[in-house]
């Protein structure tokens, strides 16, 4: 490594660097400020949750980071490269799994499609698809169609598709908001499990405070619109998490109270710099 290498990147393992990101929608000469100023880093291997009150611009934020929306100012860089269109090595899991999967393709074909788009050869595609379906516990339904599966299983397929793509970063936009509580708990454990086993970097957007604490190593709390980051809370829970014991730990309760209070303040209109 040369000297210039070590100087050019201040903290070498920053994967996603967001600096002063802004987004203002122009609606008939009437600008609506959705995101005012966002600055944060995601390091390689992180599992970061973003939580905020509804209408906090979570989806706008995620779409901007995904390169699906052009920000009005500031910058977002993946591996030092400015995000101006959907970047290489990024996978997005959307909330609307039923609309994100293609009903005319089987489960295996759905998972393999992004690989096919990249020109990955058939044998490698089949191998990666099988592995990914195995990882989410759906190896036995490879030949079925999405509409033959339950909602939770469909979201697993979307997750398998993202995993097979081998992204450097995985963005998830309230992925479990539309499934029942029991399925949701299973899917949360699956995300933790995949993150551990595959060494993923995950940015998980949710409105659910418990979910953000249970999943994350860090929780970023968003303000009301126009969106800014109010708090960056470290989650010092043991790495080995369990739906029953983790959620019963005093530290979990303390964190929940803290995040809950911050989100309430966000709803009430607290801005960064105001006393918490």
């Amino acid at each position: 490594m040369t000297i210039s290498d070590s100087v050019s990147v201040q903290s070498p393992d920053v994967l996603l660097q967001v600096r002063g990101l802004r987004k203002t929608y122009e609606v008939r000469n009437d600008p609506i400020e959705a995101i005012r100023r966002l600055t944060f880093d995601i390091h390689a291997g992180d599992l970061v949750c973003i939580v905020g009150p509804s209408g906090a611009g979570k989806t706008t934020l995620l779409r901007s980071l995904a390169g699906l929306l052009t920000p009005s100012g500031g910058s977002a860089k993946l591996d030092g490269e400015e995000i101006v269109e959907p970047p290489k090595g990024m996978a997005v899991v959307f909330q609307e799994y039923a609309r994100s999967l293609f009903p005319w393709l089987t489960i295996a074909q759905n998972v393999a499609l992004p690989l096919k788009a990249q020109g990955v050869d058939r044998a490698t595609r089949a191998e990666k698809t099988a592995k990914a379906l195995e990882a989410v516990g759906l190896a036995d339904v490879a030949k079925r169609y999405p509409w033959q599966l339950s909602g939770g299983m469909q979201q697993r397929v979307a997750l398998a598709r993202a995993v097979a793509y081998e992204p450097r970063i995985l963005l998830m936009d309230e992925p479990f908001a539309a499934v029942d509580a029991q399925t949701r708990a299973d899917l949360e454990d699956l995300v933790r499990n995949l993150w551990h086993r595959l060494g993923l970097t995950v940015l998980f957007v949710t409105h659910d405070i418990d979910e953000s604490i249970y999943l994350g190593q860090r929780v970023l709390v968003l303000s009301n619109r126009p969106t800014e980051i109010l708090d960056d809370i470290a989650i010092n829970l043991p790495d080995e998490r369990d739906q029953l014991t983790t959620r019963n730990e005093p530290e979990f309760a303390r964190l929940r109270a803290e995040v809950y209070e911050r989100v309430q303040q966000a709803k009430a209109g607290r801005r960064p710099g105001d006393a918490a």
């Binding site: 959307f94 499609l113 788009a117 990249q118």
Partner: peptide, 16 residues
């Protein structure tokens, strides 16, 4: 629109 976003985020080429 979600299918379209999915295609875009996985960088499907236009013809694909």
């Amino acid at each position: 629109p979600v299918a379209r976003d999915t295609a875009r985020s996985y960088r499907f080429p236009k013809g694909f």
